[in-house]
Write a protein that binds this DNA or RNA. Sequence first.
DNA 1: ATAAAGTATACTAAAATAGTAAACAATGCG
DNA 2: CGCATTGTTTACTATTTTAGTATACTTTAT
Lengths: 147, 147
Amino acid sequence: MKLSTRARYGSRALLDIALRGNEEPVQLKEIAQREEISLQYLEHLITPLISAGIIRSQRGAKGGVMLAKPASEIKLSEIVNILEGTIDPVECIENPTVCERSNCCVTRDIWDEVKKAMDSVLENITLQNMVERYREKENPEPVMFNI
Amino acid sequence: MKLSTRARYGSRALLDIALRGNEEPVQLKEIAQREEISLQYLEHLITPLISAGIIRSQRGAKGGVMLAKPASEIKLSEIVNILEGTIDPVECIENPTVCERSNCCVTRDIWDEVKKAMDSVLENITLQNMVERYREKENPEPVMFNI
DNA sequence: ATAAAGTATACTAAAATAGTAAACAATGCG
DNA sequence: CGCATTGTTTACTATTTTAGTATACTTTAT
């Protein structure tokens, strides 16, 4: 029930990109260094994100990658889905025909509830939220200043 | 992010046992047939459940397995934990020292929220609930009788 | 032109998963 | 008693997935 490194590294990489503003391309090499992901492996994660239209790339010298749309429009559920595939804990959720019991299976119903619970978290977090959380951690709001 | 077959088969097997009442031992061979799990693989799932005190076994002729406590006291979270290990989507939840960023990591916080969402489902479903759901599916309540 | 980037494809090592095989141990029953 | 039935244990294996590396290629700014 572990997330693969794809989704983990990928979301960290995207947060890294989002944190640099979105003014000029961020080089993969930099991201790889900061996030301690091998450049070659990072490239594997970047490719599907480009195809999916989450980021776009600038080739050649001074190239790099940028978010292809505002951070507030990139949901974590989308990222996980691209890198990890569906989050369904069992295959019969997505594809009921794999098991003839699907329509009457109690355990299937439950795994579906589990999936929905996860989804409701991932659907409600955007890259923008993550950036805000990051800034808050970096520089916490003073708690209670005046009376 | 898939559940392993261990947790899936295991929870189906336990539901199967619970459905037979709890008056006499249920043979593994029967369970294996009904649930279409190979006997030998089923045994692998039964062993840790016995060690964990979820079920107890009766050896020899006329033997089999029974729930070791009332179905209402067996939570799905417990079953999944025994067969699957922790449900944490990333290792740093359980063991923060694997990554030096843990204390400041935004993505880690999020995976923790995901875990909690899953937990809240699994913690609130007992084998008894599953039995009831099964009976309801088998024999649905008539909706609106009078008026 | 050329160096600095991203792109694409192929390959591989390691781990996890799912399952099989077989010898063994306990028990009930005739 | 003795033997068939049933669970127990341990060892092994095939397959798949994951994570990662290697390498050759393409594009572009300067």
